[in-house]
């Protein structure tokens, strides 16, 4: 197994412009690539057997003022995962959609847009809300969003032991 992964890693290294590669476990490795090479990388990886896009997600690297987009692909025949990482600008987060390579990316991109505010050009449905029904603040998984403040503003806290019009049953306190 290790051999086939090494082969694949070598192959990927030869073909793509990999900035940095990292072995995570004996079935999983990660590659960092340039922002412009992601579509080429995904197309190539799909052609060598990584046919399933497991997830698209995002990490907020607030210290570097960057968002890291993460594409995890799965090869069912070899049981291998590859993690494709790329950095994008945090101030104007925008990227190009990959739905023409993996149609299922439509919903992952909606989710990333909803929780991080990254817009995906070419995927119009990514602007629609997916999980949050009505949202009126900055995207909630950004590091500068404070959930405590939001929760205090929206949801009233119980400030005393008084319980409104009901009683506590079950285990007697």
């Amino acid at each position: 197994m290790m051999n086939s992964m090494n082969n694949i890693m070598k192959q990927v290294d030869d073909v793509l412009n990999v900035l940095n590669k990292e072995v995570i476990s004996n079935r999983q490795f990660a590659i960092d690539i340039n922002k412009g090479d992601v579509h080429q990388a995904l197309t190539y990886l799909k052609s060598i057997g990584f046919t399933q896009l497991s997830i698209i997600t995002c990490v907020d690297l607030i210290a570097d003022n960057k968002f890291q987009l993460i594409y995890i692909l799965n090869n069912w025949e070899l049981g291998l995962f590859v993690i494709v990482r790329t950095d994008i600008d945090r101030d104007n987060p925008s990227y190009v959609t990959v739905v023409n390579i993996f149609p299922g990316a439509k919903y992952y991109e909606r989710e990333v847009h909803e929780f991080f505010g990254v817009t995906f050009e070419g995927n119009d449905s990514s602007f629609k809300p997916l999980l949050l029904e009505i949202w009126d603040d900055i995207p909630p998984l950004r590091k500068d969003f404070d959930p405590q403040v939001y929760s205090d503003r929206k949801f009233e806290k119980r400030d005393s032991d008084k319980i409104y019009r009901s009683k506590i049953g079950g285990v007697k306190l």
Partner: peptide, 8 residues
């Protein structure tokens, strides 16, 4: 302190 769940 969750942004999605109610408290009371």
């Amino acid at each position: 302190d969750s942004y999605a769940t109610i408290n009371q």
